[in-house]
Protein backbone atom coordinates (compact mmCIF):
# COMPACT_ATOMS: atom_id res chain seq x y z
CA UNK A 1 0.00 0.00 0.00
CA UNK A 2 1.27 3.47 -0.85
CA UNK A 3 0.22 6.18 1.53
CA UNK A 4 -1.01 9.12 -0.50
CA UNK A 5 -2.03 11.36 2.34
CA UNK A 6 -1.11 11.15 6.03
CA UNK A 7 -0.15 13.21 9.01
CA UNK A 8 3.16 15.12 8.65
CA UNK A 9 6.05 14.20 11.01
CA UNK A 10 6.23 17.76 12.32
CA UNK A 11 2.84 17.42 14.02
CA UNK A 12 2.37 15.53 17.27
CA UNK A 13 -0.42 12.98 17.49
CA UNK A 14 -2.45 15.25 19.80
CA UNK A 15 -5.93 15.94 18.37
CA UNK A 16 -6.49 19.65 17.68
CA UNK A 17 -8.60 21.49 20.23
CA UNK A 18 -10.11 23.82 17.65
CA UNK A 19 -13.81 24.14 16.83
CA UNK A 20 -15.32 22.12 13.95
CA UNK A 21 -14.37 23.70 10.62
CA UNK A 22 -11.71 26.00 12.04
CA UNK A 23 -8.87 26.64 9.60
CA UNK A 24 -6.16 26.50 12.26
CA UNK A 25 -5.91 22.76 11.63
CA UNK A 26 -5.40 23.34 7.89
CA UNK A 27 -2.73 25.94 8.60
CA UNK A 28 -0.98 23.66 11.11
CA UNK A 29 -0.80 20.88 8.55
CA UNK A 30 0.67 23.09 5.81
CA UNK A 31 3.27 24.55 8.18
CA UNK A 32 4.18 21.04 9.36
CA UNK A 33 4.43 19.77 5.78
CA UNK A 34 6.76 22.66 4.95
CA UNK A 35 8.91 21.85 8.01
CA UNK A 36 9.02 18.20 6.86
CA UNK A 37 9.91 19.02 3.27
CA UNK A 38 12.73 21.34 4.24
CA UNK A 39 14.00 19.03 7.02
CA UNK A 40 13.53 21.76 9.58
CA UNK A 41 11.79 19.91 12.40
CA UNK A 42 14.95 19.16 14.34
CA UNK A 43 16.26 22.71 13.99
CA UNK A 44 12.96 24.42 14.63
CA UNK A 45 11.89 26.48 17.61
CA UNK A 46 8.24 27.46 17.22
CA UNK A 47 6.83 30.38 19.17
CA UNK A 48 3.19 30.08 20.22
CA UNK A 49 1.10 33.16 20.93
CA UNK A 50 -2.02 33.98 22.92
CA UNK A 51 -5.49 33.29 21.59
CA UNK A 52 -6.64 30.02 20.01
CA UNK A 53 -3.07 29.47 18.85
CA UNK A 54 -1.88 29.30 22.46
CA UNK A 55 -1.79 25.48 22.20
CA UNK A 56 0.51 25.49 19.20
CA UNK A 57 3.24 24.11 21.45
CA UNK A 58 1.23 20.93 21.94
CA UNK A 59 0.72 20.38 18.24
CA UNK A 60 4.08 21.04 16.60
CA UNK A 61 6.54 18.20 17.11
CA UNK A 62 9.54 20.48 17.64
CA UNK A 63 10.95 22.68 20.39
CA UNK A 64 8.55 25.47 21.28
CA UNK A 65 8.13 28.49 23.51
CA UNK A 66 4.84 30.08 24.46
CA UNK A 67 5.03 33.89 24.37
CA UNK A 68 2.95 36.47 26.22
CA UNK A 69 0.14 38.13 24.24
CA UNK A 70 1.61 39.92 21.24
CA UNK A 71 5.24 39.38 22.15
CA UNK A 72 6.04 36.41 19.93
CA UNK A 73 8.13 38.45 17.46
CA UNK A 74 10.27 39.78 20.35
CA UNK A 75 10.69 36.26 21.75
CA UNK A 76 11.49 34.90 18.27
CA UNK A 77 13.99 37.72 17.69
CA UNK A 78 15.91 36.68 20.78
CA UNK A 79 15.73 32.93 20.12
CA UNK A 80 17.09 33.44 16.61
CA UNK A 81 19.88 35.68 17.85
CA UNK A 82 20.60 33.30 20.72
CA UNK A 83 20.68 30.25 18.42
CA UNK A 84 21.27 31.42 14.84
CA UNK A 85 21.57 27.78 13.74
CA UNK A 86 17.92 27.19 14.70
CA UNK A 87 14.93 27.74 12.46
CA UNK A 88 12.56 30.10 14.30
CA UNK A 89 8.92 30.68 13.45
CA UNK A 90 5.98 32.23 15.24
CA UNK A 91 2.32 31.30 14.86
CA UNK A 92 0.06 34.24 15.77
CA UNK A 93 -3.52 35.35 15.38
CA UNK A 94 -4.74 38.78 14.32
CA UNK A 95 -5.51 40.11 17.80
CA UNK A 96 -2.08 39.03 18.93
CA UNK A 97 -0.10 40.22 15.92
CA UNK A 98 -2.02 43.25 14.67
CA UNK A 99 -3.35 44.72 17.91
CA UNK A 100 -1.53 44.15 21.18
CA UNK A 101 1.66 43.02 19.43
CA UNK A 102 1.72 45.60 16.64
CA UNK A 103 4.89 47.24 17.92
CA UNK A 104 6.74 43.93 18.19
CA UNK A 105 5.56 42.89 14.70
CA UNK A 106 6.46 46.14 12.99
CA UNK A 107 9.86 46.45 14.66
CA UNK A 108 10.87 42.85 14.04
CA UNK A 109 9.92 43.42 10.39
CA UNK A 110 11.69 46.78 10.21
CA UNK A 111 14.87 45.32 11.67
CA UNK A 112 14.63 42.54 9.13
CA UNK A 113 14.91 39.90 11.84
CA UNK A 114 15.65 36.57 10.23
CA UNK A 115 12.46 34.89 11.48
CA UNK A 116 9.29 33.58 9.83
CA UNK A 117 5.79 34.48 10.96
CA UNK A 118 2.60 32.57 10.25
CA UNK A 119 -0.21 35.08 10.72
CA UNK A 120 -3.74 33.69 11.07
CA UNK A 121 -6.27 36.38 10.18
CA UNK A 122 -9.83 35.36 11.05
CA UNK A 123 -11.10 38.93 11.49
CA UNK A 124 -12.01 38.46 15.14
CA UNK A 125 -10.78 37.42 18.59
CA UNK A 126 -11.51 33.69 18.52
CA UNK A 127 -10.50 32.48 21.97
CA UNK A 128 -12.42 35.13 23.91
CA UNK A 129 -15.58 34.59 21.90
CA UNK A 130 -15.58 36.67 18.73
CA UNK A 131 -14.84 40.27 19.65
CA UNK A 132 -13.80 42.90 17.11
CA UNK A 133 -10.19 42.67 15.96
CA UNK A 134 -8.11 45.26 14.08
CA UNK A 135 -8.77 43.11 11.01
CA UNK A 136 -12.56 42.92 11.42
CA UNK A 137 -14.12 43.87 8.09
CA UNK A 138 -16.30 46.96 7.50
CA UNK A 139 -19.91 46.18 8.46
CA UNK A 140 -18.86 42.89 10.09
CA UNK A 141 -20.78 42.17 13.27
CA UNK A 142 -18.85 40.92 16.28
CA UNK A 143 -19.72 40.79 19.98
CA UNK A 144 -18.07 44.20 20.47
CA UNK A 145 -19.25 45.69 17.18
CA UNK A 146 -22.83 44.41 17.37
CA UNK A 147 -24.12 47.05 14.97
CA UNK A 148 -21.49 46.18 12.39
CA UNK A 149 -18.08 47.82 12.12
CA UNK A 150 -18.39 51.42 11.02
CA UNK A 151 -15.35 53.62 10.46
CA UNK A 152 -16.83 56.57 12.35
CA UNK A 153 -17.56 54.45 15.39
CA UNK A 154 -15.21 51.46 15.55
CA UNK A 155 -12.50 52.78 13.26
CA UNK A 156 -11.04 51.28 10.10
CA UNK A 157 -9.49 47.82 9.67
CA UNK A 158 -5.74 47.26 9.50
CA UNK A 159 -4.26 45.69 6.39
CA UNK A 160 -1.00 44.16 7.61
CA UNK A 161 0.32 43.49 4.12
CA UNK A 162 0.11 47.19 3.21
CA UNK A 163 1.71 48.19 6.49
CA UNK A 164 4.57 45.72 6.27
CA UNK A 165 5.16 46.46 2.60
CA UNK A 166 6.14 50.00 3.61
CA UNK A 167 9.24 48.65 5.37
CA UNK A 168 12.65 47.72 4.02
CA UNK A 169 13.15 44.75 6.36
CA UNK A 170 10.82 42.06 4.99
CA UNK A 171 12.27 39.64 2.44
CA UNK A 172 9.01 37.82 1.82
CA UNK A 173 5.35 38.80 2.37
CA UNK A 174 2.37 36.87 1.10
CA UNK A 175 -1.34 36.49 1.79
CA UNK A 176 -3.08 33.18 1.14
CA UNK A 177 -6.34 31.27 1.66
CA UNK A 178 -6.82 27.55 2.36
CA UNK A 179 -10.29 27.08 0.94
CA UNK A 180 -9.52 24.54 -1.82
CA UNK A 181 -6.75 22.07 -2.65
CA UNK A 182 -5.50 24.42 -5.39
CA UNK A 183 -5.40 27.44 -3.11
CA UNK A 184 -3.70 25.32 -0.45
CA UNK A 185 -0.99 24.45 -2.99
CA UNK A 186 -0.37 28.17 -3.51
CA UNK A 187 -0.37 28.68 0.27
CA UNK A 188 2.15 25.89 0.72
CA UNK A 189 4.40 27.48 -1.90
CA UNK A 190 4.25 30.74 0.04
CA UNK A 191 5.11 29.05 3.34
CA UNK A 192 8.03 27.25 1.70
CA UNK A 193 9.28 30.55 0.25
CA UNK A 194 8.96 32.26 3.62
CA UNK A 195 10.92 29.47 5.30
CA UNK A 196 13.57 29.46 2.58
CA UNK A 197 13.98 33.22 3.05
CA UNK A 198 15.05 32.53 6.64
CA UNK A 199 17.22 29.57 5.66
CA UNK A 200 19.05 31.84 3.23
CA UNK A 201 19.40 34.54 5.89
CA UNK A 202 17.43 37.08 3.87
CA UNK A 203 15.48 38.52 6.79
CA UNK A 204 11.88 38.81 7.91
CA UNK A 205 9.22 36.68 6.24
CA UNK A 206 5.49 36.56 6.92
CA UNK A 207 2.58 34.63 5.45
CA UNK A 208 -0.90 35.90 6.27
CA UNK A 209 -3.54 33.17 6.13
CA UNK A 210 -7.16 34.28 5.77
CA UNK A 211 -8.86 31.83 8.04
CA UNK A 212 -12.43 30.87 8.89
CA UNK A 213 -13.82 31.09 12.41
CA UNK A 214 -17.26 29.45 11.97
CA UNK A 215 -18.15 29.48 15.68
CA UNK A 216 -17.65 33.20 16.14
CA UNK A 217 -18.86 34.17 12.69
CA UNK A 218 -22.11 32.33 13.57
CA UNK A 219 -21.86 30.31 10.36
CA UNK A 220 -21.67 26.65 9.46
CA UNK A 221 -18.16 25.49 8.52
CA UNK A 222 -19.19 25.37 4.86
CA UNK A 223 -20.72 28.87 4.96
CA UNK A 224 -17.56 30.15 6.65
CA UNK A 225 -15.40 28.50 3.97
CA UNK A 226 -17.29 30.40 1.27
CA UNK A 227 -17.24 33.65 3.29
CA UNK A 228 -13.43 33.58 3.22
CA UNK A 229 -13.43 33.48 -0.58
CA UNK A 230 -16.43 35.64 -1.30
CA UNK A 231 -16.10 38.40 1.32
CA UNK A 232 -12.78 38.33 3.17
CA UNK A 233 -10.56 37.74 0.15
CA UNK A 234 -12.25 40.63 -1.65
CA UNK A 235 -11.21 43.03 1.09
CA UNK A 236 -7.82 41.41 1.75
CA UNK A 237 -6.67 40.21 -1.67
CA UNK A 238 -4.45 37.09 -1.61
CA UNK A 239 -1.11 37.13 -3.39
CA UNK A 240 2.59 37.71 -2.93
CA UNK A 241 3.32 41.25 -1.83
CA UNK A 242 7.10 41.12 -1.43
CA UNK A 243 9.49 38.58 -2.89
CA UNK A 244 13.18 39.41 -2.56
CA UNK A 245 14.77 38.02 -5.69
CA UNK A 246 17.20 35.89 -3.67
CA UNK A 247 14.19 33.97 -2.29
CA UNK A 248 13.64 32.46 -5.74
CA UNK A 249 17.30 31.74 -6.52
CA UNK A 250 18.90 28.33 -6.13
Amino acid sequence: MAVLFSRPQSLTDTPFRYCPGCHHGLAHRLVAEALDELNLREKAVGIASVGCSVYTNEFFNCDTQQAAHGRAPAVATAVKRARPECFVFTYQGDGDLASIGMAETIHAAARGENISIIFINNACYGMTGGQMAPTTLPEQKTTTSPLGREAAREGNPVDMMKLLDALEGPAYLSRVVLTSPGKQAAAKKSILRAFRAQMKGLGFSLVEILSACPSNWRMTPVEALHYVDEVMAKYYPPGEVRVAKEVLEG
Binding site: M1, A2, V3, L4, F5, G21, S180, P181, Q184
Partner: peptide, 17 residues
Protein backbone atom coordinates in the same frame (compact mmCIF):
# COMPACT_ATOMS: atom_id res chain seq x y z
CA UNK B 1 -7.22 13.88 -1.86
CA UNK B 2 -9.51 16.92 -1.72
CA UNK B 3 -11.36 15.58 1.33
CA UNK B 4 -8.13 14.97 3.27
CA UNK B 5 -6.74 18.37 2.31
CA UNK B 6 -9.86 20.14 3.54
CA UNK B 7 -10.06 18.20 6.79
CA UNK B 8 -8.98 20.59 9.59
CA UNK B 9 -8.55 17.67 12.01
CA UNK B 10 -6.39 15.41 9.86
CA UNK B 11 -8.93 12.66 10.38
CA UNK B 12 -8.55 11.25 6.86
CA UNK B 13 -5.68 9.04 5.68
CA UNK B 14 -5.58 7.90 2.07
CA UNK B 15 -3.60 5.01 0.63
CA UNK B 16 -3.74 2.92 -2.53
CA UNK B 17 -2.46 -0.42 -3.84
Amino acid sequence: LACARLCPDLAITISKE
